[in-house]
């Protein structure tokens, strides 16, 4: 059902299916916040410049402020609320708390989703601008601080928690490598 101003869409957010009627101009970010009630994703700039709205759509990082809700129809969306499960915090969340990977916490939902996405991208062999050999059959490089900084640079943090965030991401990656 659609009219000139709104559409009915299906969003799967954190494994729950939502049937929503949304203003066609509504962004995925606003749909998550205003319609689904997940205010974890934050509107820091509404221009895709700060990364505070980062969520995972089908496992990949997207800035939800530059994604129209109607264009996310059918996507499996994971917000920061969906990172932790019944078993408690994910290792990356636990590392952020323990290593103080945030201060005000406003960019944190985006940093966390971005970190989960970045770790998956690296594990899948995607190179970054910090990767020495970017040829398709180039070697998989070990994740180091320079790689993490490059891959996380779409997520601004004005409190300046960057060094702690990098430590948390590297530690999480190392743990995942050990535990497989």
């Amino acid at each position: 059902m659609t009219d000139d101003f709104s559409s009915e869409i299906t969003l799967e957010v954190n494994d729950v299916t939502h049937r929503l009627r949304v203003d066609n101009r509504r962004t995925l970010l606003d749909a998550l916040r205003e319609d689904v009630g997940h205010t974890g994703p934050k509107k820091g700039c509404d221009h895709g410049q700060c990364g505070a709205c980062t969520v995972l759509a089908d496992g990949r990082r997207v800035v939800s402020c530059l994604t129209l809700a109607v264009a996310a129809e059918g996507a499996r969306v994971t917000t920061v609320e969906g990172l932790s499960g019944e078993g408690g915090l994910r290792p990356i969340q636990e590392a952020f708390v323990r290593l103080d990977g945030f201060q005000c916490g406003f960019c944190t939902p985006g940093q966390l989703c971005s970190a989960v996405g970045a770790l998956a991208e690296h594990a899948a062999g995607w190179p970054s601008a910090a990767t020495a050999d970017v040829s398709p059959d180039g070697p998989t490089t070990e994740l180091d601080a320079a790689e993490v900084r490059e891959r996380m640079s779409g997520n601004l943090c004005r409190c300046g928690a960057y060094p702690s965030i990098v430590r948390a991401v590297l530690e999480t990656a190392a743990r995942a490598a050990v535990t497989g």
């Binding site: 916040r33 997940h38 205010t39 974890g40 994703p41 934050k42 509107k43 917000t79 920061v80 609320e81 990172l83 932790s84 915090l89 969340q93 952020f96 708390v97 945030f102 916490g105 406003f106 944190t108 939902p109 966390l112």
Partner: peptide, 14 residues
């Protein structure tokens, strides 16, 4: 900390 890493901390627009 836990509120801030789970999206549960509510800011003014939330």
């Amino acid at each position: 900390g836990r509120l801030k890493v789970t999206g549960a901390a509510r800011y003014a627009a939330d």
